[in-house]
């Protein structure tokens, strides 16, 4: 009895040994949810708002196509007309087949039919270039397309 009483009287410092574990847990959570930005944008892309939105499920099955006017920094080189960006460089329409093919080869055969192209187009762009991209996608048999948009909260 005397032994227990003696122990209870002196308050030991709270052990911080488990603190790293807690932090590591948080760390792993953020490491898992982190998506590093795949490519630096050379075109300005502010996607329009819409209401009928679908969420894209599997990131690895998506390839991104950006269309917009070049940002200030790149206007000297590319002008102000709408441009297409594939990966991290400004491209021409006829670079698209290779881009799609390169993405396709990273995936196993069975999943290839579920590839979606996420087209991120700036709202100010005229339809001409978008139409050309659509036509090329159709020619390549890449028919699942997602027009990227933000949720609209106000009325039209």
């Amino acid at each position: 009895m005397s032994k227990f009483r003696k122990k209870g009287k002196s308050m030991p410092a709270i052990s911080t040994a488990s603190l790293p574990d807690i932090i590591f847990m948080l760390l792993f959570f953020f490491m898992v949810v982190t998506v590093m930005r795949e490519s630096e944008l050379k075109v300005k892309v502010q996607v329009p708002q819409a209401t009928e939105l679908t969420k894209l499920e599997q990131k690895s099955l998506v390839n991104y196509i950006y269309i917009g006017r070049p940002t200030k920094k790149f206007q000297e080189i590319y002008g102000t007309a709408p441009q297409l960006q594939l990966g991290d460089k400004i491209s021409k329409i006829n670079d698209l087949p290779l881009f799609l093919e390169q993405h396709k080869t990273t995936l196993p055969e069975v999943m290839r039919s579920r590839i979606t192209s996420s087209i991120r187009v700036d709202g100010d762009v005229t339809m001409g270039i978008v139409q050309d991209v659509k036509t090329e996608l159709r020619k390549q048999g890449q028919l699942r397309v997602n027009y990227s948009a933000r949720q609209r909260t106000d009325d039209l």
Partner: peptide, 12 residues
Amino acid sequence: VDKGILVKLPPW
């Protein structure tokens, strides 16, 4: 999360 309007283009 990437959201957007999903469409299926007609084959060429």
